[in-house]
Simulated scan of single mutants.
Amino acid sequence: MKLFTTALFAIAFGIVIGLSFPSLWITEIWEPSNPRGAERLPSGIIASESDLYLRRLWGNPDEDLVKQPRYLATFTVGYNQRHNIDACVSKFSENFTIVLFHYDGVTSAWNDEFEWSRNAIHISVKKQTKWWYAKRFLHPDIVARYDYIFIWDEDLGVDHFNAEEYIHIVKKHDLEISQPGLDPETGFNWQITKRREHSEVHKETDEKLDWCSNPPRPPCAAFVEIMAPVFSRDAWRCVWHMIQNDLVHGWGLDFALRRCVEEPAFEKIGIVDSQWIVHQFIPSLGNQGKADNGKAPWQGVRDRCQMEWKMFENRVEAAEKDYFRSLQVESPSNSTTSH
Rank of each mutant, 00 (worst) to 15 (best):
W240V: 06
L247H: 06
H279V: 06
P283D: 13
G252N: 05
L257S: 03
G300C: 13
W236R: 01
W298G: 07
A221S: 09
P219M: 06
W211E: 14
F266V: 07
N287F: 15
K295P: 03
N245G: 14
V230A: 07
N287P: 02
L253C: 04
I269D: 09
H279K: 12
Q288W: 10
H241W: 12
W236T: 03
R217A: 12
S284L: 13
G294E: 13
M242S: 14
G250F: 03
T205W: 00
L257M: 09
K203I: 07
C220S: 04
I277P: 09
A296R: 14
E200L: 09
R258L: 06
S284R: 09
M242L: 15
E207R: 00
V248W: 12
F255T: 04
E263Q: 15
S274V: 10
P216Y: 01
R258F: 11
V239W: 00
V248E: 15
C260F: 04
G300P: 04
E225S: 01
H279G: 05
L209R: 12
I269Q: 04
V230I: 14
D246T: 02
P297S: 08
V248N: 13
V230R: 05
W240A: 12
K295Y: 10
E200G: 00
G286K: 09
L247Q: 02
C212K: 04
P216I: 05
W211G: 02
T205C: 11
L247S: 01
I243K: 00
M242K: 13
L285D: 10
G300H: 10
A228M: 13
G270Q: 07
G252L: 07
H241D: 14
P283Y: 07
C212T: 08
I226R: 09
S232H: 06
D273N: 12
R217Q: 15
D206C: 08
A291K: 15
H249T: 15
L253W: 03
R258G: 04
G294P: 11
V224L: 01
L285P: 05
P283K: 10
C212D: 05
L253D: 00
R258P: 01
I243F: 00
H241M: 10
K203V: 08
L253V: 01
F255K: 07
P216C: 11
R237F: 12
N245M: 13
P216T: 06
E225A: 04
A256T: 10
S232I: 00
A222H: 02
S232K: 04
Q280V: 07
G294D: 08
S274T: 14
R233N: 11
I269R: 00
S274Q: 04
N245W: 09
K268W: 07
I269N: 02
D292C: 13
K290N: 12
S284P: 06
K290T: 14
G252E: 01
P283F: 08
E204P: 01
I226A: 12
K203P: 02
V201Q: 00
Q280E: 13
K268F: 04
E263M: 11
Q244P: 11
D273E: 01
F255C: 14
V230E: 02
V224R: 03
M227K: 06
N287H: 15
G286A: 12
P297A: 09
I282Q: 11
H202C: 03
E207M: 05
F231H: 01
Q280N: 15
R259D: 08
W211I: 10
